[in-house]
Amino acid sequence: MFFIQLRDLFKSYGPVRALDGLNLKVPKGSLYGLLGPNGAGKSTAIRIICTLLAPDSGHVEVGGRDVLLEEKEIRQRLGYVAQDVAIDKILTGRELLQLQGDLYHLDSKYKRKRIDELIQRLDMHEWIDRRSGSFSGGMKRRLDLASGLLHEPELLILDEPTVGLDIESRSVIWELLKELRKKETTILLSSHYLEEVDELADEMAIIDKGKVIASGKPNDMKKGLGGDRVTLRVREFSDEAEAESVRKLIRNINGVSNVVVNQKQGYSLNFLVKSNDVISNLSSHLSKENFEVFALSHSRPSLDDVYLQATGKTLMDAELELAGKRDFKLENKKSMR
């Protein structure tokens, strides 16, 4: 059963198309990761699910209800932790949580109990009664997470929850998310950190230019790449001709695919192997042509490889490319109401 279903979502800001026919299905009780560079459309999709933004066209369903028709019902059921933490600097952390509790109409006794629970769980008791203007990024994020969880939502939505955070805050947040997942809370998380999605997500989607271009379980997606990644050198610094002849040789070995010569790394060879047996037999194949193994590294495919396969570039390259094109004025404007 799917808790969130997005069908054919389109959204433009003037000439900029933020969502270009986005489709997404998030299973109930799962932790779902949206991976993509900044500016890919993750935040826009999340704002639409949170009822902050209406799509130009498309269908949005949360918990079996149409978000565009039953906004209030949806708001009661979801907790939202925004990308730019919006905290009133003048209020103390506890006052903010109290305000949040009143906005969700919690009964005062229950509100107090719940606030105490979350302060303890997120380890905030030392500073919660200070004015939040003095909080670090990690403290604000934890406070924001607590306010998102105050009313025990069925669905928790986090937009880039650990961007720029200290390690302690990050691990506190990760632990809490893992615990929530065990309790069957559906969690939707956007991130441009590969390891975050890899560590946390049951399922994930890669978003690029406002569309989902690949989705599935992170492990399946890594396996789907066709095997482990191997980097081979037959000499410390080969030349092009040597690398090319090695490439021709190993290309024909059963179980080897996607052989490329990496010119930037001293003409080393990168390829995928189906199983470890292929690697053990590699040196005997090479010695037939008087090559030897100078260095060999072997790694499980990472999400970065998945991303590379899906988009044709690494996530970091995509970030850099988009960084120059971003219109921060426009982005700020679209987040304002």
């Binding site: 209020l91 109290q98 009143d102 109409h105 009964d107 969880l149 809490l176 615990e179």
Partner: peptide, 30 residues
């Protein structure tokens, strides 16, 4: 930390008017 499908009624303010008064007074207090 628990998450319930929906918050039991007794944990919430009773009726619409009470809810509205609760949110207005909280926002004004802020």
């Amino acid at each position: 930390i628990t998450t319930n499908p929906s918050i039991p009624k007794e944990k919430q303010s009773r009726n619409d008017l009470n809810q509205m008064l609760q949110e207005i007074s909280a926002l004004t207090w802020r």
